[in-house]
Design a binder for these strands. Structure first.
Lengths: 336, 336
DNA sequence: GAAGGACTATACAACGTTGCAGTACTTAAA
DNA sequence: TTTAAGTACTGCAACGTTGTATAGTCCTTC
C-alpha cells in the first residue's frame, strides 16, 4: 500500500536503481533527473522501507539501551541524554529495563538478535566480567562503575574518588562520626564496594577510625532503604554526625527519617548523596551531592558505539576505559 | 554469517519451508521431522531474522510509546507498565520523548513509517483533536486527559471528577480558602482546564465562592513551578488554608516553599496533589494525592491496540473512550 | 474398488531494497 | 585518431522469510 521505489521510479520515468541512488545521495545523478525524482518522492510521500533496507544491509539503525530502572531519576536522565545523542546520528534507541535482575540481563546479552539491534549501551547491575561477553559480535558499551577491564568499551566516572570527595567534604566540615548508607555484601555490587572504598579512604585521609557499625547496608538504592538505614543508625548508642549515602534516593530517604524525628539537618547530622538528581534540588533541606557529568557520559557512550559500528567488520581493538569528570555540589544538607 | 532457515534445512535434510513451518508451529509436521529440525535449530543457534519476517508480513512487532517526558515519575511508571503489558504479547516498545513540544509531536504522528511501527500509544500534550489524525492508518491509542471524541481510541481517568474528589477532600476537612496550583491558559492545556473545572465544581458543591486570586497559574508541571506558585500565594493579603495542586510534582514544590517558610502542614495549610508518584510517599510530610489506576491504564492501552492490530485490514469501528478508576489517597499533608 | 479427505512435504514467488556488473555516451589525454 | 577515464543510468541478483499452489501418500468411507 505505501509507495516504494518502484512507484517513484514509474512516476519519474527512471529506473528503480536511479531512485535508490537519489535517495542515498549518490553523486553521479544529473541535476535534472535528481529534481524529477525528488518531485516524485515528494508527490507520493515515499518513505524508505527500513525492513528491506536492513535485510539488505544488515544494519537496522536501532541501538538498545539497557538500564536497571527508568523510574530512577538518574537513569531516566541518562536515557534522555543518550536518546538525544543517538538522534544526532539518526539512530533510534530501544530502551530496555532489566530491573537489575541477572536473568533479564543475561537474556538481553544473549537474545539481542531477536530485536535486530546494531549495538548496545548497557548499565549492568547483576552481571560481572566475562558473563557480559556478547555471543554474537554486536558492539557494546558499558556504563557505570562495574567491571574495569571487562570485555567491552566502558564509560564511567572514578567512583572511588568521587565517594572520597563526598566523604572528604564531610570531614572538612569537622564531622567526626561519619556513617555510610548503601553498603552491599554481594560480590556483584561493585558500585557499593567502590563507594565504600572511597568512603574509607577519605576517613583514613582525615585520620578518622573506621567503625563498621557506621557502615549501614541497604537492600536496594531507594528512598525506603535509606529511610530504614537512617532509622537504624539513630537507634544505636552513638549516632553519627554526618552520613554519606551511596545515592541521592537513599539520601532523600534518610532526610525523611531525620526530619520526621525532628533532628536538624545539617546542624546535628549532615547528609550528602550521589547522582545529583532533580529531586535533591527541591528537597527540604536541599541535598548536597556528587554530580557526574551525565551529558558527557551519554555522548561518549554513543561515540564509542559509533566507532565500533563504523569499522564494519574490523575485529577492532582492545576495550577502552573512559573516565568522566564529576564535581561536588554543596547544598543545604551540608550547610551550604 | 548468522544461520538462516536455509542452513537449518540443509542440516536437517528437509526443505526450507518445512523448517519455517516448525518455527511457526504449523500443525501438520511429523513428530520425527519436527524433532530433527528442532535439533538442527538448537545446534546452529538459529534465530529468525525479523527484518525479513517484517518485509514479508508488514508487521514489525514494535509499538511506539510517546510521552512528554520520562523523567516525570508518573510517565516513567506508565512506561514501565506498558512495556510489561506489551511483553506479554511479545511486542517490543520503542519509547519516544516529545518534551511536550508540538513540533516533536507532529513529527511523531507524521513520521512513524520511518521506524516501522505497528502501532502507537500516545500521551499528547501540545496537539489537539484533528491534528492527531495519523496520516497512514497506523493504529493509535491516546492516553491521558486530552481530547475526548478525538480520532482514536482513548484511555483516561475521569479527570474532572478526580479533581473534584481532591478538592472535596479539602472542603470535607473544613477548609474554606482553597487554592489551586497549575492553572494554564492556553487552549491546548486540557488537563489543566479539566482539573480547574473539577476544582470549581467541588467548591460550588461545598457552597464556597470562587476566588480567581486563588487560582494560580504554572508554566509547567514541575517542582519549581509549584514552589514559585506557592510563594506567590503566601505573599498575598489572605493566603489559603489549603491547596490543590494539579500534579504531585507541583505539590512537592509547594511543600518545599511551605516548609522553608516554617508554615506547618497540614495545620495551617493542607496540600493535596495528583498522580500518586513514589516521591510523595517519602516527602515531608507525606503527600495526599489522587491515585489513577495506572496498571489498568497500561493494560487497557495495550489491549485496545491489540484489537485494532488484530483485525488486520478492517477499517474498524468508531474510536472508543475508556474511563479508568482513580482513588483518593489521604496522607500526612492533609492530616491523615 | 474408486472417490474423497486428511496429512506431510516441497517449489516458487514475492516483500523493497541495494551491491555489482554492465551499457552508452561524453570528455580529456596520448 | 585511438585510448583512457569519467559520467549517467540501468538490469539482475540477493538479503531471509512466508503465502499459495501443488503433489504424493495413507486412510476412510460408500
Amino acid at each position: 500500500m505505501p509507495p516504494g521505489l518502484k512507484d517513484v521510479a514509474a512516476r519519474a520515468g527512471v529506473s528503480i536503481k536511479t531512485v535508490s541512488n537519489v535517495v542515498n545521495g549518490y553523486v553521479h545523478v544529473a541535476p535534472t533527473t535528481r529534481a524529477r525524482v525528488q518531485a516524485a518522492i515528494e508527490a507520493l510521500g515515499y518513505v524508505p522501507n527500513i525492513a528491506a533496507r536492513q535485510l539488505r544491509s544488515g544494519r537496522s539503525g536501532v541501538i538498545a539501551l539497557a538500564v536497571p530502572e527508568l523510574q530512577s531519576p538518574y537513569f531516566a536522565e541518562i536515557a534522555g541524554l543518550i536518546v538525544q545523542a543517538a538522534e544526532r546520528r539518526s539512530w533510534t534507541v530501544l530502551i530496555d529495563q532489566t530491573d537489575g535482575l541477572a536473568e533479564r540481563e543475561r537474556d538481553l546479552v544473549e537474545g539481542l538478535r531477536r530485536h535486530a539491534i546494531d549495538g548496545l549501551i548497557f548499565s549492568p547491575l547483576a552481571l560481572a566480567g566475562e558473563e557480559l561477553a556478547l555471543r554474537d559480535g554486536t558492539p557494546m558499551v558499558l556504563l557505570g562503575e562495574r567491571v574495569w577491564h571487562g570485555p567491552a568499551d566502558h564509560v564511567a566516572i572514578d567512583n572511588t574518588a568521587a565517594a572520597a570527595d563526598a566523604t572528604g567534604h564531610l570531614t572538612a566540615l569537622g564531622r567526626r562520626r561519619i556513617a555510610a548508607i548503601g553498603v552491599q555484601d554481594k560480590p556483584s555490587a561493585v558500585t557499593a564496594h567502590q563507594r565504600l572504598a572511597g568512603y574509607r579512604a577519605a576517613l583514613a585521609e582525615a585520620g578518622l577510625p573506621i567503625d563498621t557499625a557506621l557502615e549501614m547496608p541497604a537492600e536496594g538504592f531507594h528512598r525506603a532503604d535509606g529511610a530504614a538505614a537512617m532509622a537504624r543508625l539513630l537507634d544505636t548508642d552513638s549516632p553519627p554526625d554526618a552520613v554519606f549515602c551511596f545515592n541521592d534516593l537513599l539520601a532523600l530517604g534518610a532526610l525523611r527519617t531525620l526530619l520526621s524525628r525532628g533532628i536538624p539537618v545539617p546542624d546535628d547530622i549532615a547528609v550528602i548523596g550521589f547522582d545529583d538528581i532533580e529531586d535533591g534540588r527541591f528537597s527540604t533541606p536541599t541535598l548536597s551531592t556528587i554530580a557526574p557529568d551525565a551529558p558527557r557520559i551519554a555522548q561518549l557512550a554513543v561515540d564509542l558505539l559509533a566507532e565500533r559500528l563504523g569499522e564494519g567488520s574490523t575485529p577492532s581493538g582492545a576495550p577502552r576505559e573512559l573516565r568522566v569528570d564529576h564535581r561536588l555540589v554543596a547544598r543545604e544538607s551540608t550547610g551550604a
